[in-house]
Design a protein around this nucleic acid. Structure first.
Length: 672
DNA sequence: GTTAGGG
DNA sequence: CCCTAAC
């Protein structure tokens, strides 16, 4: 990319996680990226209401510290992708997707600044990410637990380090949680203590009852949103300690699900304090009814030292964090549904299921199918949302197959249905609800189309630059043939759909434009994205292909000179591209071959038994055999039915079918 | 490049 | 038949 704008070379996606703590991030930004102008994603005004209470907007931090909304072009120019996450929410997850989207990421940085209880940075291991050129992950945190995850192989990571806010820790390897972190947290606590009074006055509009009941959450969210709105609308000056002035609401929402008795800290608590009410209401810690004294005592019990802070809010927050830290918070406690935060609450076994359940509800597509649900000790590292865990289930007889991309696509489509559908231009028969994947599209100077999509993370969401899911490889060769054909004699058969192939994106069908994403240039051949974009389109295109393929020399099998010839469509009937009915001789050949070489040796069979029918590929043989098997077993119980099945299929003599069955049984008994 | 299996 | 993952 040409460095058209100096301010764009070093962009930062700054994601403040839900529940409103992004205020403090800018400070950290400055520390971490001093000097350079930054582009950040910060929560923006809540234009959407359903299920997505906090949206994120790309903004740039200009020199004087103001947040300037990014222009479309700026968004497009993000080439070095930085993701910065700052939060003091309970859990912070930095994530870069595993898909080929990353193919286009040249430099990927994840920066996480957090005093969160749990901070997880994740970069995937998939080989698709091989092309991520340089990967940085910085995690600055005074967190109780910080987990950086970087792939073991494949990515030429430049470096990855986790550094504490105080810069004490620097490591080339991701460091697991150590006691050092805990101590740092204590230091931090001390620091904050000194500033305690200031905090007290700065905490914005903390309601007197800070304990979040779920019925109240909507309100808080709205408050936060309003807060962000204000932030975005007027220039922001950074206060010195913004990081700490966050609303403590989310700390109370943390809800450390754990077996209450299991935590040693807690038992200590209940002994030490004068019977503070630590009974949990459905898994919650109730701190708010405690007097300051009790809170201080609790603090002491939690952190092992005295405190003089009088600020109830601050105390509660700290205590909650301490407790949460000791309790191994599951990745997702909260679920956004119908504009409400819903904490999944279960009686005893909460931890065991909360993760899989929530994710099952909300991030179906990104969730590993078998989310660890068996243990009561849930680590954040167990829940990176990669697509990797599919395989590890049962490696049984059959070859394990992960869902095809098409399948994945379908899944993700259904997954994101519940999002706020920015109603795009509604098309006639294809409702926009079917394409909720694409959040926004901005076209800049007719060159590229940039799209962001929303990724669900631990119940929160963030936008990431969208790159097409669909395959990027060479188009199907018959499509290529089609293209060639069109280039040569376009005027002959030009239909509206065909002419789309060589026209500007704006002239494509609505669906296509809506969904397909990176149209690099108009000259680039339209690929599978086009064909897969929706069913109707596909059918249409296929039909076009069919018609155009009929001239024999186009046939991509290259062997159409063979005797059978291509099925000629009469009057443009829809037929498959290369359909060649299996003749009886072929079938017998196949059966012969199988009996000779065994089922599965398709290339052998092809070589020997089908040398005269070169158009049958080994795959064809395999498919045919599969069908034969099906037919034979389907027909076997009632032998009377004979070979006359449906009129469409070939009439296979019974002897052959029984022979097939014979062979099949033999083969299954004698594994090769 | 081949094979298995889903579509 | 096609497509694609797994080998």
């Amino acid at each position: 990319m040409t460095s058209s704008s100096p301010t764009l070379q070093d962009c930062v996606f700054e994601v403040g996680f839900a529940m409103g703590t992004a205020v403090g991030t800018v400070e950290d930004c400055r520390e971490m990226f001093e000097g350079s102008a930054q582009t950040s994603v910060t929560p923006s005004s809540p234009t959407n209401q359903i299920g997505n209470p906090v949206a994120y907007k790309l903004v740039r931090v200009s020199g004087d510290g103001r947040l300037v909304p990014a222009t479309d072009e700026e968004i497009l120019e993000v080439n070095e992708t930085d993701m910065l996450i700052a939060s003091d929410a309970c859990q912070t997850v930095g994530y870069l997707a595993t898909d080929e989207e990353n193919l286009e990421v040249n430099e990927t940085n994840i920066h996480i600044a957090s005093d969160a209880c749990q901070t997880v940075g994740y970069l995937p291991t998939d080989e698709e990410n091989l092309e991520v050129n340089e990967t940085d992950m910085h995690i600055a945190s005074d967190a109780c637990q910080t987990v950086g995850y970087l792939p073991a192989e494949g990515i030429p990571s430049r470096l990855s380090h986790i550094e504490s806010s105080e810069g004490l820790l620097q490591s080339d390897n991701v460091r697991p949680y150590t006691d050092q972190y805990y101590e740092e947290m204590l230091q931090k606590v001390e620091q904050e203590e000194r500033l305690g009074n200031v905090h007290g006055s700065q905490v914005p509009s903390t309601p007197p009852d800070a304990n979040i009941q779920f019925s109240n959450e909507e309100k808080f969210i709205k408050e936060d949103q309003a807060h962000y709105e204000a932030l975005l609308q007027e220039p922001i000056s950074f206060s010195s300690n913004v990081q700490n002035e966050c609303n403590m609401n989310q700390s109370d929402m943390i809800e450390p699900y754990s077996n209450a008795a299991a935590s040693p800290k807690e038992t200590a608590l209940s002994e030490a304090a004068q019977k503070p009410d630590f009974s949990r209401v459905r898994g919650e810690i109730c701190l708010d009814d405690l007097p300051i004294k009790a809170l201080q005592e609790t603090f002491r019990a939690t952190f092992g030292r005295e405190t003089t802070v009088k600020d109830k809010t601050w105390l509660k927050r700290r205590i909650a964090m301490g407790l949460v830290k000791s309790c191994d918070v599951p990745a997702t406690n909260l679920t956004i549904k119908d504009n409400k935060l819903i904490g999944k609450q279960e009686k005893s076994n909460v931890i065991t299921n909360v993760v899989s359940k929530d994710m099952g509800d909300d991030v179906r597509a990104t969730k590993p199918k078998d989310a660890p649900s068996s243990t009561d000790h849930v680590n954040a590292t167990d829940h990176y949302y990669a697509s990797e865990d599919y395989s590890s289930e049962q490696r049984d007889a059959k070859r394990v197959r992960k869902p095809t991309r098409r399948y994945i696509e379908e899944l993700s489509e259904t997954d994101e249905k519940q999002q706020n559908d920015k109603p795009m231009i509604p098309s006639k028969d294809q409702r926009s609800s079917e394409k909720p994947e694409v959040r926004s599209i901005s076209v800049s100077s007719g060159k590229r189309v940039a799209v962001t999509r929303t990724v669900s993370l631990a119940g929160s969401e963030m936008k990431v630059p969208y790159v097409s899911h669909v395959q990027r490889s060479r188009p199907r060769e018959n499509i290529m043939a089609l293209m060639d054909y069109h280039s040569s004699c376009l005027e002959d058969r030009a239909s509206p759909a065909e002419s789309n192939f060589s026209l500007t994106p704006s002239q494509l069908n609505n669906e296509v434009v809506k969904r397909d994403l990176v149209v690099e240039s108009t000259s680039r051949p339209v690929q599978r994205e086009f064909a897969t974009s929706d069913k109707n389109n596909e059918e249409h295109i296929l039909s076009v292909v069919d018609q155009d393929m009929e001239p024999e020399h186009i046939d991509s099998s290259g062997n159409s000179s063979d005797d059978m010839g291509l099925p000629i469509t009469q009057g443009g009937a829809l037929r498959r591209k290369h359909h060649r009915a299996w003749t009886l001789s072929e079938v017998t050949n196949l059966v012969e071959g199988v009996s000779k070489y065994g089922a599965g040796k398709w290339s052998e069979i092809k070589k020997h038994s089908f040398s005269s029918h070169s158009y049958r590929t080994s795959v064809d043989l395999k498919d045919k055999w599969r069908n034969l098997l099906k037919a034979s077993f389907a027909q076997s119980p009632s032998n009377s039915m004979g070979s006359l099945k449906k009129h469409g299929s070939m009439h296979i003599p019974v002897q052959i079918l029984s022979r097939v069955r014979e062979l099949a049984e033999k083969q299954s008994l004698v594994p090769r």
